[in-house]
């Protein structure tokens, strides 16, 4: 028993980041995150789904290949540093998605629930405001519209007190930027 515990405890934390068009499987990703270890006491998940807002036919997501993966990897590292996590998984889809289809998956595994739940919320809040993705809505009448960034998302991200200019998409006004780290 003691030997088995020691072996499991030595499994290093797992961080998985994936961006692509393929759908994801919540059960399979959860199993992969916890495979081969018995030190996980809490596994938190968030699945973002394409919601059928007024006459929406589809969403089309684009990203910045390279930068997007790196930006998510960096914030995943931040989550791992802030909470005692045993691993986290972020899968974000791009391309055309219809109402009902999953867009994004965040999984966090920790010995206890608080770290798993808090870090999961942190990751999705950050993703919404700091990872380079852009959504375009196509209406059933064929009209196209870029989704605008929401102040509420900025507020949600700000509660985690993110530090570091390199995490932050500053605007290009030089002189009239507000002081401090917030936007």
């Amino acid at each position: 028993m003691a030997e088995a515990r020691a072996a499991a405890a030595s499994v290093p934390p797992r961080v998985t980041v994936r961006v692509g068009e393929e759908a994801f499987d919540l059960a399979a990703e959860s199993a992969a995150l916890c495979a081969g270890r018995d030190d996980v006491g809490g596994l938190a998940s968030f699945v973002g789904i394409c919601r059928a807002d007024d006459a929406l036919e589809s969403l089309t997501l684009e990203h910045y290949p390279g930068m997007t993966e790196r930006a998510i990897g960096r914030i995943a590292g931040e989550a791992m540093a802030r909470w005692p996590l045993l691993g986290c998984t972020v899968v974000h889809r791009v391309g055309r998605l219809r109402p009902g289809e999953p867009i994004v998956l965040v999984l966090t595994a920790a010995p206890h629930r608080a770290a798993a739940l808090e870090s999961c919320a942190f990751l999705i809040d950050w993703l919404k405001t700091r990872a380079p993705f852009w959504k375009r809505e196509t209406g059933r009448d064929g009209t196209e519209r870029w989704v605008e960034a929401r102040a509420a998302d900025d507020d949600a991200a700000a509660r985690w007190d993110l530090r570091g200019q390199d995490l932050h998409g500053q605007d290009l006004r030089g002189q009239d930027r507000p002081g401090g780290a917030g936007r």
Binding site: G48, L61, H63, Y64, M67, H92, I103, V104, I124, L127, K128, T129, R130, A131, P132, F133, W134, K135, W146, V147, E148, A149, D153, G169
Partner: peptide, 10 residues
């Protein structure tokens, strides 16, 4: 150098 609107993922 990249230019883009405020991000809207998640």
């Amino acid at each position: 150098v990249a230019f883009f609107p405020p991000v809207t993922g998640g």
